[in-house]
Design a protein around this nucleic acid. Sequence first.
RNA 1: GGUCCCAUCGUCUAGCGGUUAGGACACCGGCCUUUCACGUCGGUAACAGGGGUUCAAGUCCCCUUGGGAUCACCA
Length: 467
Amino acid sequence: MSEVRLRFAPSPTGYLHVGGARTALFNWLLARKLKGRFILRIEDTDVARSTQESVDAILQGMEWLGLDWDEGPFFQSDNFPLYREHVEKLLSEGKAYRCYCTPEELEAKREKALAEGRKPKYDGTCRNLTEEIPGKPFAVRFKAPKDGVTAFDDLIKGPISFNNEELDDLIIQRSDGTPTYNFTVVIDDASMQVTTVIRGDDHVNNTPRQILLYEALGYPVPKFAHVPMILGADKTRLSKRHGATSVMAYRDMGFLPEAMVNYLVRLGWSHGDQEIFSLEELIEKFSIENVGKSAGVFNPDKLLWLNHHYINESAPDQLAELLIPFLKEREVDPEGGPSLPAVVKTLQERSHTLLEMADGAVFYFRSDFDYDPEAVAKFLKPDVAPRYEALLAKLDSLNEFTHDAIEAAFKELCADQGIKMGQIGPPVRVALCGGTTSPSIYEVIEVLGKEETRKRITRALDSVRGG
RNA sequence: GGUCCCAUCGUCUAGCGGUUAGGACACCGGCCUUUCACGUCGGUAACAGGGGUUCAAGUCCCCUUGGGAUCACCA
């Protein structure tokens, strides 16, 4: 019984956001590193706010990132009898009690306490009631100790302790009979034998209450690791104002999951000076001890840099597959033109995202594009006509239509005509792609092929001649 | 406000008593060059403040300041 068991337990009230994804990733990495089990559990006790769409979105996000789970997904809503059983147990042992205070009464007390500068803590009105009040709705409260200290050694933050007098008697079962979060999370983690709880540090204040519950129930207390939150550029909690927060939105913006994983893991964790990690390396090198204690700012520029790195490293065939949806969005049919992997190859080192790559690829598949007016004014002057003609002739004479042969042809042409590359390159680029930005024209010509290249240069030639 | 947590370049971070405080992103220059980008070379830039402990403190302790989390019949 030395196997580590970790879990990711999101509540299905929205998509998988980057913070949750990082928490899931840390859990997954540790499970894989220690050859333990990774459990996925959906915390849907709040029936009103939980949706199936959210469950699907979370699963989809996990899959995109490559975070597979060994057990689950489990749903808390399937465990209600189990929770009820535990409530009964605590009740019968006198470790919990029925509270007949209404939410309205409690709210009034809370406001009064706040107004008088006291702590808004439950006053214990029903704590010592000896008899049940038949027919009156009640919630069940946990009878927490009034003194003493509850402490734990957080794997990330170190020793943390709370005076029990700060904790009040929390509600473990609502008056409608449903259990509350702090209770279900304890029952589930205990019954699933979770050994290490890695979660967001917004939960540290819940931890002592949960420890008390573990102890009251007679379950072993797991280890805790609270990971710091992710902030936006202005150091406030990351939100939509800062850009996308859903991991799937990053896929849609043309990011690779490898980049996302690499970025997320390095936000808060480090291994010396290393920046680039394959998944295998992460599993080998990840350790919870090296996760930092302080919150981190999400830096889109660095994500972009990593994404470029992974685009550059990826096989053109695979990128081509991933690029297709982006091309279709631009109403480009990749079937009808040059080889997509060949196109991809010319764009890899100059693309930070697949979206950028798609934008750069469009011209390959359209021959009827408009010329950029500025480029026309600058490069499509009458004196390029003879150069276009010479180029056409030169290309016709080529035995093999390869990058190197094409480059050689341009060199010869420059020598023949006594011109520099700068006098022929830009006009050719405009002819081929309509603007002044593109991959190397040798590559473009090779990928386009002789026939299409001819067509485009001829078209530009006509244009220059005023036709 | 109570409780809890945090604090090294603009950002992510290395550092685990003795360092010219290192790397990465971004930024600024040079080079490369048919454009854009890539690449490459170089540069600007940080230990929040104050007390201790110690021969020696970015590293240990305390205080201050600043930031954050949390105080529900939400999770």
